[in-house]
């Protein structure tokens, strides 16, 4: 069951997702232990595998540290749903094969703690707690291709060996 962790705020930045004091390592498990630490100290204790994070506009703004995506992925979060994403965070996620969902209406229909189910192909999030459905535009084809290959480097390796 995917639980939604909702942060009804814009500009949740990379310093809040993974503070720079932990950037002396790139170990995903270690980063995961500090995921969202400066935004919600209790996050790592309440998140379970497959859960989703829901945010407002400009999610992931700030630094280019891919560590932000790794911390979220390392915490076994399935995806992040936001109104909009900051550019480098968005690109980093695609490059590491991590699907992001841009859904401008998500915050209107998903409350903290709700159970959600995501249909990536059809492009909607179903809120199983309230019955509401939120549509989103699936990622562009080239991004899906990179994600399906497992990330940009795998995509490059595949391209050169095919």
């Amino acid at each position: 069951m995917a639980k939604a962790h909702v942060y009804n705020r814009d500009h949740i930045n990379t310093d809040e997702i993974i503070p720079a004091r932990y950037l002396n390592t790139d170990d995903e498990q270690e980063l995961a232990r500090h995921c969202l630490e400066d935004l919600d100290e209790g996050f790592v204790d309440k998140v379970s595998e497959g859960d989703v994070i829901v945010g407002g506009e400009d999610f992931g703004c700030g630094s280019s540290r891919e560590h932000a995506v790794w911390a979220i992925r390392g915490a076994k979060v399935q995806t992040v749903i936001a109104k909009t994403f900051a550019r480098i965070f968005y690109r980093n996620a695609i490059n590491c094969g991590f699907y992001l969902i841009e859904a401008p209406e998500a915050l209107d229909h998903i409350n903290d703690g709700d159970e959600v189910e995501i249909n990536y192909e059809a492009g909607y999030v179903k809120n199983k707690t309230t019955g509401a459905e939120v549509k989103f535009k699936p990622l562009p084809d080239f991004a899906v291709e990179i994600i399906n290959d497992g990330g940009l480097l795998e995509h490059i390796v595949k391209g050169t060996t095919d």
Binding site: D26, G62, S63, S64, R65, E66, V69, I88, R91, N92, N95, C96, G151, L152, L153, I156
Partner: peptide
């Protein structure tokens, strides 16, 4: 690094990327 955009002051296109893009 996200502030790689600094170099645009020299009429260049310059942008910050994450580690995977950097590797590529």
């Amino acid at each position: 690094d996200s502030h790689t955009c600094t170099y645009g002051a020299f009429a260049a296109f310059s942008t910050g990327v994450g580690s995977t893009d950097l590797a590529a």
